[in-house]
Design a protein around this nucleic acid. Structure first.
Length: 269
DNA sequence: ATGGTCGACTCTCGA
C-alpha cells in the first residue's frame, strides 16, 4: 500500500455503476461524483470507443479517467481523484476471444482495482452461456496470475450473477436463469473463493437490496422485482477494513434512469 | 413467453 493511501485520514471510497451508455448517463455520473466525491468510480457498459469517451467534463470535475471501450456495447472505465495506472485490459491469457472491453485492471496509489463487466449469457442453452461460465474460470486464473490474496486488492463491477437466493426476487422462478442457475452461481463462488469477499453482504448479512431492475419487466421498479448484480469485493485484509457498503438509488430517480444503480463502499486504509 | 423496454446503430443486436 502506498504511503499516500496508508496515511489518509479520510476513508477510501470506491463506487461501481453500470451506466448503460456513459454518454447518455453523463449527467447522472457528474452529479453523483460532485455530490459524493468517491476516490474511485468504476463504470461498465460505457458503450463508446475510447476516442469518443466524454473525458473532458469528468476531468473538469476533478477526475482522472481511463477506459477500454468498443462501439455500441460493453466498455469499462475507471474515474479516480488520484492518477490511475492501467495495468492491463482484457485477460491477455492467450485465449481467443479476449475482450478488452470487459476488464480493466488499474493501480491507484499501488492499490490494485479490477473493474469487470461479466457476460450476461442470454439463455442456458446458448453458447453465450457456456462462454460466461468459462469467462469466470478465466477470471479466477487471472487473479491467480496477477494478484496476491494476502495483499489488498479490489474487484468490482457488473458480475451478472445474483450470488444467493436473497439477491433475486422470486428465486424459485429463476432457477434456469443465466444469472441465477446453480451452475452459474457455482462458477461465481468458485472464482471468488480465490480470495474475494463481497463487502456489501459482509456489512449487511440479511438485507435484501437489489441493484438492477429489468426495463422489460413491467412495474419491475414499483414492485421491486430486481436483482443484485453489481458487486464490490475485497481481499480479506482489505474487507476487514470496510466500514460501510451501501446501494444508492439516486440514478433510478433521475430522468432517463439507468437499469442499474450505484453501489459504494468505504475502507479505512 | 427472450415477451416487455432501452440504447446504439443499422434497418438489428445486446441486455
Amino acid at each position: 500500500m502506498g504511503d499516500r493511501l496508508a496515511h489518509r485520514s479520510q476513508p477510501f471510497k470506491l463506487a461501481t455503476f453500470n451506466v448503460n451508455s456513459v454518454r447518455k448517463r453523463l449527467p447522472h455520473v457528474l452529479t453523483w461524483v460532485k455530490q459524493h466525491r468517491p476516490d474511485v468510480l468504476c463504470l461498465q457498459e460505457t458503450k463508446v470507443e475510447d476516442h469518443a469517451f466524454p473525458t473532458q467534463p469528468l476531468m473538469a470535475a476533478g477526475y482522472h479517467v481511463v477506459m477500454s471501450g468498443t462501439k455500441g456495447y460493453n466498455g469499462v472505465a475507471v474515474l479516480g481523484r488520484h492518477p490511475i495506472t492501467v495495468v492491463r485490459t482484457g485477460f491477455e491469457d492467450g485465449e481467443d476471444p479476449d475482450e478488452p472491453s470487459r476488464l480493466i485492471h488499474v493501480l491507484i496509489d499501488d492499490l490494485p482495482v479490477i473493474n469487470v463487466y461479466a457476460p450476461q449469457g442470454f439463455s442456458i442453452d446458448s453458447p453465450k452461456y457456456a462462454y460466461k461460465l468459462h469467462w469466470f474460470r478465466r477470471l479466477r486464473r487471472y487473479f491467480a496470475r496477477h494478484l496476491s490474496a494476502d495483499q489488498p486488492a479490489l474487484l468490482c463491477g457488473d458480475l451478472n450473477v445474483a450470488p444467493a437466493p436473497i439477491d433475486v426476487h422470486h428465486p424459485e422462478r429463476h432457477l434456469k436463469h443465466v444469472c441465477f442457475h446453480e451452475e452459474v452461481r457455482q462458477a461465481y463462488h468458485t472464482t471468488m473463493a480465490w480470495g474475494f469477499v463481497d463487502v456489501y453482504r459482509l456489512q449487511h448479512p440479511r438485507r435484501q437490496q437489489f441493484t438492477f431492475w429489468d426495463y422489460r419487466q413491467p412495474y419491475a421498479v414499483q414492485a421491486n422485482r430486481g436483482w443484485r448484480f453489481d458487486h464490490i469485493l475485497a481481499t480479506p485484509s482489505l474487507a476487514n477494513r470496510c466500514r460501510r457498503a451501501e446501494v444508492d438509488l439516486e440514478p433510478r430517480l433521475a430522468p432517463s434512469p439507468s437499469d442499474h444503480t450505484i453501489v459504494w463502499a468505504e475502507f479505512h486504509l
